[in-house]
């Protein structure tokens, strides 16, 4: 009996690190693409509303450069970047959705006040108004 799981060991927290840039197949979308909002809001249950989070093991997504987001999702999906659950999740989204999510998160301000105050940031609501796209 090995007791593999409870044996003390150094916890390797760094699952990310440097990842090679991958070619981007996804089409360019705008930050007000409703597909981006629909897909991106599913991340918020862990990564915070609009990708804003602090003091957490979860990576903040608000304000993340779109290329970085896309590279991360593609490398989670193909397994080149180790993960616990991001691999299966990343594989379940389309290239178009990933690009739209990337645009959405890049457009979100990093500061908490603007990120969650409906009065000072209307981009989220606008994404849902077809006439404003």
């Amino acid at each position: 009996m090995t007791r593999r799981l409870i044996r003390g060991a150094t916890l390797a927290l760094a699952t990310g690190g440097a990842v090679a840039a991958l070619p981007l197949h996804a089409e360019t979308t705008t930050a007000t693409d409703p597909r981006g909002l629909m897909a991106a809001q599913t991340c918020a249950g862990c990564h915070g509303t609009k990708g804003y989070i602090e003091d957490s093991a979860y990576v903040p997504l608000a304000g993340m450069p779109r290329e970085r987001f896309i590279t991360a999702m593609e490398s989670f999906a193909d397994g080149s970047r180790p993960s616990t659950l991001m691999g299966p999740l990343a594989r379940a989204f389309t290239d178009e959705e990933i690009a739209a999510m990337a645009d959405y998160f890049e457009a979100q301000p990093k500061e908490r006040a603007r990120a969650i105050d409906p009065a000072s940031d209307q981009t989220t609501g606008q994404a849902l108004d077809p006439e404003e796209n």
């Binding site: 799981l5 060991a9 390797a12 862990c46 990564h47 957490s56 093991a57 979860y58």
Partner: peptide, 18 residues
């Protein structure tokens, strides 16, 4: 083992984030 431990770490962080 690190993956099991990471999942536990995320579990604890999830309570606040969620």
């Amino acid at each position: 083992e690190a993956e099991y431990r990471l999942a536990a770490l995320y579990q604890h962080n999830w309570m606040k984030a969620f």
